[in-house]
Design a binder for these strands. Structure first.
Lengths: 175, 175
DNA sequence: TATTGTTATACTCTATAACTATA
DNA sequence: TATAGTTATAGAGTATAACAATA
């Protein structure tokens, strides 16, 4: 390795990202979103289900007897993708599908008692992952961050908008 | 459609995400990271290059004559992946590879004048995308958001850390 | 033997659309 | 004809590791 003189290496050994990229919030969002996804996946491995499954269970816990289409729409999943996810949840006994007697094309999906139990476990895990991911921030900073992310999500992920502003109210109030 | 009585639809037509998910910052980070990626990809289509290519050009603009390994390390890319990206940049005449005479295993990569020109264009485009993505926020809020994201990135994307804390300083000070 | 760059392979995701059964 | 769910297929993207040249 040409090791007579250690070259004084003024450039740091640990490779750093260009400041220009680090200065970009969208760049950081992409990287952090990826990191959050990876950490979630690693944590969920022990449970045998994917964060996708967790989201489905949450939807069913809010309003059971959803149709597959309404679940897919609520989460932004493709309907074809949802079929496989529900197959897996059903195999594990966490949800149950039955035909809607009023429209036999539809499946009504419900949470089983085992599904409710799993959901409890997944909620605890998700809280843990979130808390760990945000650990560099104080509680106040976490609230600030969430508020800012939510404002962006209202625009870029409209499904996040919690309430549709009433037509006669000034729309600014909803922000 | 069984259209005698319109059902009064108390559930909103627009499918909404469960509040539980929207309340999670890591969930929002994942979705926003994905949205940022999608918007970048759409914007970069007109240029014929990918955001990956842009990042490589930025690295070369900071410090030319990088080896392929150091570029990959700086950006966190796989070295095998980088080969193809550099092939594409070279085909377009934006970068040039030549062997390092001091170590003939290595390739030194440099920006061509065309690459510099393209980089100018890409910088303008990236600024536009960023500005549009953050448009719901005021300048002060944008700065707040970036500060918070950066603090998270220092932990979850160590390549973002701008300066290595001096060994004699208390490590807590580095956040 | 270890490292740089290259190539090949395989695997995961996702997007698309064809297909069925019901309406 | 249109819709809900299902299935199959293809494509992009990514990760892994085998490989040749050089140290």
């Amino acid at each position: 390795m040409n090791a007579t003189i250690p070259h004084t290496t003024p450039t740091p050994k640990a490779a750093r990202l260009p400041e220009e990229l680090v200065a970009s919030s969208t760049f950081l969002l992409k990287r952090l979103g990826f990191a959050a996804k990876e950490q979630s996946l690693a944590a969920y491995e022990q449970t045998g289900v994917h964060p996708y499954h967790h989201a489905i269970l949450i939807v069913l816990d809010e309003r059971s007897h959803e149709t597959q289409g309404s679940i897919a729409d609520a989460l932004g999943y493709d309907r074809g993708q949802l079929v496989g996810l529900l197959d897996e949840l059903e195999e594990k006994g966490l949800v149950q599908r039955r035909r809607d007697p009023n429209d036999r094309r539809r499946h009504l999906v419900t949470l089983t008692p085992e599904g409710t139990k799993m959901l409890r476990r997944l909620r605890a895990l998700a809280t843990e992952v979130e808390s760990d991911f945000l650990s560099p921030l104080t509680d106040i900073e976490r609230a600030q961050l969430h508020g800012l992310l939510f404002r962006l999500a209202e625009k870029h992920e409209p499904r996040c908008a919690l309430s549709v502003p009433p037509p006669d109210a000034p729309s600014d109030a909803a922000g």
